[in-house]
Amino acid sequence: MSEISRDEVKHLATLARLALTDAELDEFAGQIDGIIDNVSAVRSVDADGVVPMSHPHSIETTMRPDVVGHMLTPDQALDQAPAQAQQRFKVPRILNEGNE
């Protein structure tokens, strides 16, 4: 067991700006110990020969070449816009803050 101290939990709570009671400090110390123990158990697994994966399914994705293609001009992109300003789409304000 990793035995994280109550003072370490209190320090972490202070860094996170959390106000914890004494009971919560004790409870979270035990929970964090459990998390650390579980991570340590996973680290001890023999993973030699296991290929790292970024996705749980073995899928092959094809990537297209990253080449510059035909792009719309600002005028072409905005020609069907109901409203525009300064070469941008103009939309109704949804928050009561900032400028139009």
Score class of each variant (00 low, 15 high):
76 Q>N: 03
14 T>L: 11
66 D>T: 07
64 R>S: 06
64 R>Y: 07
85 A>I: 06
79 D>W: 01
97 E>W: 15
51 V>P: 07
16 A>D: 09
11 H>W: 11
34 G>V: 05
83 A>G: 00
99 N>T: 09
40 S>Y: 14
41 A>R: 14
16 A>S: 06
66 D>G: 04
45 V>L: 14
9 V>L: 05
47 A>Y: 09
6 R>A: 13
33 D>M: 02
34 G>P: 03
34 G>L: 05
36 I>S: 08
52 P>S: 02
75 D>P: 07
65 P>V: 06
34 G>T: 07
37 D>N: 12
88 R>L: 04
82 P>V: 00
48 D>C: 14
74 P>Y: 00
23 A>M: 10
27 E>L: 13
53 M>C: 13
78 L>Q: 00
96 N>Y: 08
61 T>I: 15
32 I>H: 04
56 P>R: 08
42 V>I: 14
68 V>I: 10
26 D>G: 09
29 A>M: 02
19 A>H: 12
71 M>L: 10
52 P>D: 02
59 I>F: 06
99 N>A: 13
11 H>C: 11
61 T>M: 10
91 V>F: 03
17 R>K: 12
16 A>I: 06
82 P>M: 00
88 R>I: 04
11 H>D: 15
11 H>I: 15
97 E>P: 15
98 G>L: 02
63 M>G: 08
82 P>R: 01
